[in-house]
Design a protein around this nucleic acid. Sequence first.
DNA 1: CTGAAAGCGCTTACAG
DNA 2: CTGAAAGCGCTTACAG
Lengths: 345, 345
Amino acid sequence: MKGKGKATSFDIAHYAGVSQSTVSRALRNSPLVNEETKRRVREVAQQLNYKVDKNASNLRTQQSSTLALLLFEDPTGDDSQINPFFLNMLGSITRACAKEGYDLLVSFQSTSDDWRAEYEDSHRADGIILLGYGDYMDYKSRLQRLLENDTKFVCWGANVDGRPDLTVRCDNYGGGKLAAEHLVKINRTNAVFIGDASDHCPEFFDRFKGFKDGLSEHGIVFNERNIANAISTEMSGYHATRSLIANNVKFNALFAASDLIAIGAIRALQEAEINVPHQVSVVGFDNIAAASYVSPSLTTVQQNTTLAGQMLVANLLNLIHGEAVESTLLPPKLIVRQSSLQKIG
Amino acid sequence: MKGKGKATSFDIAHYAGVSQSTVSRALRNSPLVNEETKRRVREVAQQLNYKVDKNASNLRTQQSSTLALLLFEDPTGDDSQINPFFLNMLGSITRACAKEGYDLLVSFQSTSDDWRAEYEDSHRADGIILLGYGDYMDYKSRLQRLLENDTKFVCWGANVDGRPDLTVRCDNYGGGKLAAEHLVKINRTNAVFIGDASDHCPEFFDRFKGFKDGLSEHGIVFNERNIANAISTEMSGYHATRSLIANNVKFNALFAASDLIAIGAIRALQEAEINVPHQVSVVGFDNIAAASYVSPSLTTVQQNTTLAGQMLVANLLNLIHGEAVESTLLPPKLIVRQSSLQKIG
DNA sequence: CTGAAAGCGCTTACAG
DNA sequence: CTGAAAGCGCTTACAG
């Protein structure tokens, strides 16, 4: 049935009694080929377990049918603990690629590395999807370089200067507002913010700005001193909250820039015997799986990772095919759970 | 500096004043090439931002420098909620591949699909890593088929009949024993098991058997009726535990086949106002990130995903290179947290 | 140490 | 509708 090496289109041609060119056409479903011929070719191909050699066809057509996913990690992160939010994104991107008939090459890169790998990937893939966390300032210059090299890419979250069409992101500002409005509604407005409210982390900054504006629309002024810096880990959220408590800051609401931070914050509050939600209402951001597991379960602003993955892939493919791509903003959604519950009134 | 299309080895040859063959040799660091010539070639290559075309070199050498990762998912699972344990594995496999200079192609596949995709992947990659959850019985025949096709692959967890060298797994039996010994030590031996104790899920079954034997070595007989079936989700663990409570089963210890199950179990217990750990000690399996976030934090048997990823990749590469591969069993490790605490005595 | 040439397995004008 | 032929960009015997 099958020789030592893999079957080639010449083998199929031989058994089907046609030329190799016809085999190639038949398998690509060219309208030029007679239906009956196609049928015969396909049958033989299946019997010989033949599959088109991707390297050969890619070389010939000068494309790869492959997208690359580059995950930038914060170098401080533990080796095996990747932010679950990005892992979810990875899942949905993988699915979206498969649906479009593209392979997905995955690589991780520390933000401190030189950016050689991106460039290499640009030769193996038709385009790149960038998922980054960590400091945006490090990140920014590399985006610029990718642009100069005319590489096709789309970014999650981060803005590419002058090219908003290359970004897919959640409406972080709007999400921050949702959080604020929720807290206003349950009458918890003496709030603190845990996260990074600076240019170094534009996503967190937008969440913060939306939050602040959301409060101010209801006449509540956010006290800028009520910010504690944190990166997106449980540990960091824990320590930031502890320091707030240690500094004797008083508050009845806590908005965390991410769920991981919020989960760490709840731990710090509970350790200090501050009851959540009775004394402090906590709202996170992302809606990772753990948000519903922790106790009290976490009220949070959901980012739709399934849709995000689809949009990232769709936009990148449009870009590759030279079609117009628009800036994509995904709507966030408030998920109310127990960490913010309070009887109204 | 750079023309429209990408630079080829002929361009480098032109600028470096050597033949294209020499460029190829120099870039592959062949000992045949003069050091000075190498230096010059490399310099030009870098200036032109040249990278070897993978499709061409793979086609020529008849290999791909690519491994494929196939994630089998239980079709019941929610679209975007992949078991975090496997996501961690994915992370470590990606890193291990990168370290060995291999690319990683990732694909997901529902266990209910026909297995066409595996086979296709076998044409694009030098080998396949299989990560599966869901029902092993569905899974088994496909492994057999891969074997028949002489595909190079390694499996996480699942046994390949007659080829133990193709499996990398955690010592699930030993892990179950660790759980039992811990509960014996804290004097909590009236235990229930939540998970699937059947051939359909050999990993869970091994955990169960180790657990049972661990108890019996201390003269404690596990009551076989104290098993509640569950698949590896929080929901399933929750429902299984609820039914146990509803059936009025009395117990002071609970061993869950996975952390997700354990987390669901804790929720069910807390809902029924059964205190963890004071009335029931809970032990999970995996040590996913959430295990340390939930409250009480979860005592669990850790699987070393970093090592697992490395071994999976290392074994697969050995297999591809025709070297001897041994069956690999990774040692589990007990992580004691608050869900099982009890004053001894 | 270096170069000229063959060939990996396809796709696609070109010619019928 | 079909076939013969060129060529994608490499790697590697072969010859010097």
